[in-house]
Design a protein around this nucleic acid. Structure first.
Length: 568
RNA sequence: GCGCCCAUAGUUCAAUGGAUAGAACACCAGCCUUCUAAGCUGAAUAUGUAGGUUCGAUUCCUACUGGGCGUACCA
């Protein structure tokens, strides 16, 4: 990395770390800067005087001349004006050499980590809250891999909880109802149908709580793996799983393995017995609980007083299974932040049991609606189906209105890419610790800080490259001398900083912001500086710069799971 | 009650303790015989309150106010 080399060289001379360097807020202040407060303090000097002294020393250093034109002392800062020719050549060369790997980091040291996300429940609908989880988990996995972790994406489907019994209960009662019949005609809406049943069941149970016994009876029948309800469970479970698979395929998200609660629940029940014997769990009020009061972690119920299993039973077994079946150092759970206490409890239980399962909770905040909290129970949700249909319809309309000459396939494929990118980016561009209040009009905009803006910038760039000459390797990069070319070069190198930060914070929003700023800089550049209409040799050099920008776009897009479009 | 999170422009979001707090949307004024106007240029608008630490605080600490979430049989 060209910029990294300069920082390291200067760092050695000055006795500071590469990380101490900052980027000046104004283009006139140079390309690189070093605040001297800390250094001055450690030497007992005034930072302003130190800046003067060091700038003279550095300006007299003959060895730096090939990299740095001038060092200026501005108050307590040292500002570096980089040698334009070697900067642009250095950066473009970096990108050409590294290609798809440009920006990769090594903080993962190839350690295996399992990333569990998209923990949907069968027999409930898939809504935009699930989409945030899906896109976030997918992007974090990609970022970790780019930081040289061996990140293994897995999903855990809860197909065996009490919600299943509720849904089947309502499903059977409602099977003959008109709207159920209507809905179940369409295969792709079967997942949606089950979600409706779940909401119906909760509504009815709120009115008549005494009917809970019927639910428990169904749950026990399913747990016994026998009888009518077990058969019905198998069928409806398959609907949900097919529905989820279709969603993953649609968004081009792959899991290395999908775990199911029904497959680990028996191991879980054995583990409960073991922990009961060890005294980690105990019986209380007819239920089995983990009493963690003395660790300030409250009480975690494990098995209900009616004998049916709660969520932790399977989760305990699954956590162990992951470490048995895979070579991993850590198991990361991408789960709504509201379950933070639960994961602390889980970790404590393993600690008490002397297990080596190292689990960590990667929380993110939830998706709400203007009408309030989303809730599967109440049915106040925007489902995947609803948001997708709307997103696609809007994208198709936009594309069609701009390209009357395109074939239908071309329009559809482009609209599909745009709609997918729009939804992903809406979920990823906001920091994980922020609640997203989802507004469909806001989310499906195609201007401003959106995926469409990024993709449009990329398409404009691709268009120029298509029209220009091809062999940019022969370009004379020393011709690039525009101040905007210089700052673009510095910004391209900063992609690596963003990857590093995104990896450390496990936050795709860092990449999103970087790409947006890069797109802004690129737009600003090509509006002001003609590429194809410049003098012949300069055209080639500028095309080389554009190709480097395109590479960084592509690398960044892929971390977010967004398609780079050649045309739109 | 206890615990956790959040509070920046009309709205949605940025800002490893550092230079004049940045964007986007909306609003207003401009730019398509000029590499795709999903774009560009310009104008206007903000750190909840009170203290503390620091050369320096949107950032760290304390209290308060307001909002959200969690807190034994949902996940």
């Amino acid at each position: 990395m060209y910029l990294e080399e300069i920082k390291n060289k200067l760092g050695e001379i000055l006795g500071v770390a590469a990380l101490d360097f900052v980027y000046p807020p104004q283009i006139e202040m140079g390309e690189l800067s070093l605040p001297l407060f800390a250094l001055a303090k450690s030497r007992g000097l005034n930072p302003v005087n130190l800046a003067q002294e060091l700038s003279q020393k550095l300006n007299n250093d003959i060895n730096l001349k090939q990299y740095i034109i001038e060092v200026r002392a501005v108050g307590p800062y040292l500002n570096f004006y980089l040698q334009t020719e070697s900067l642009l050549a250095g950066v473009i060369n970096d990108i050409q050499v590294n290609g798809n790997n440009f920006g990769q980091q090594d903080n993962g040291s190839n350690n295996g980590v399992m990333v569990e996300y998209s923990n949907a429940n069968t027999h409930k609908e898939y809504h935009i809250g699930h989409l945030r989880n899906l896109f976030y988990g997918d992007s974090v996995t990609k970022i970790l891999n780019f930081c040289n972790y061996h990140a293994i994406p897995v999903s855990y489907i809860n197909d065996f909880g009490i919600h299943v019994a509720k849904t089947l209960w309502a499903f059977q009662k409602g099977q003959n109802k008109f709207h159920y019949q209507e809905l179940s005609k369409s295969v792709q809406d079967k997942g949606y149908l089950l979600g409706q049943c779940y909401a119906d069941a909760n509504r009815e149970l709120t009115e008549s709580p005494e009917k809970k016994d019927e639910i428990v009876a169904i749950m026990k029948e399913i747990e016994s793996r026998n009888g009518v309800n077990y058969k019905l469970w198998e069928d409806t479970r398959a609907w949900s799983i097919a529905y989820f698979d279709a969603i993953y395929k649609h968004f081009n998200i792959q899991f290395e393995h999908i775990f199911y609660e029904s497959e680990v629940i028996d191991d879980g029940l054995r583990l409960v017995q073991e922990f009961l014997n060890k005294g980690i769990f105990k019986k209380s009020q007819g239920a089995i609980i983990a009493d963690l009061e003395k660790y300030d972690l409250g009480v975690l119920p494990i098995v209900r007083s009616d004998g049916t299993a709660l969520y932790p039973v399977a989760d305990l077994a699954l956590a162990k299974k992951k470490f048995n079946d895979y070579k991993i150092e850590e198991s990361i759970y991408v789960v709504d932040i509201r379950q933070g206490l639960y994961f602390k409890q889980l970790a404590k239980i393993f600690e008490l049991a002397g297990e080596k399962t190292r689990i960590s909770h990667l929380g993110y905040d939830f998706v709400a609606l203007k009408s309030g909290m989303m809730s599967s129970r109440s049915g106040n949700v925007i489902t995947y189906n609803q948001v997708w249909e709307e997103a696609y319809a809007r994208a198709e309309k936009e594309v069609a209105s701009r390209h009357e000459d395109w074939t239908e396939i071309q329009i559809k494929e482009t609209a599909n890419s745009l709609a997918i990118a729009a939804l992903k980016f809406e979920m990823l561009k906001v920091s994980a610790d922020k609640v997203i209040t989802f507004d469909i009009d806001e989310a499906l905009r195609f201007e401003g800080y959106t995926a469409a803006y990024l993709q449009y910038s990329g398409a404009r760039l691709a268009s120029i490259l298509r029209k220009g000459a091809s062999n940019v390797k022969k370009a004379d990069l020393s011709l690039l001398s525009h101040v905007k070319e210089k700052s673009l070069a510095v910004f391209l190198e900063r992609f690596a900083d963003s990857v590093l930060k995104a990896g450390e914070q496990k936050d795709p929003a860092v990449i999103s912001r970087y790409l947006f700023e890069l797109a802004q800089q690129f737009n600003d550049y090509y509006h002001e500086v003609p590429v194809l209409k410049a003098e012949a040799n300069l055209v080639l050099a500028r095309l080389a710069l554009l190709q480097a920008i395109q590479q960084v776009f592509k690398n960044g897009f892929s971390l977010l799971g967004i398609n780079y479009l050649e045309e739109m």
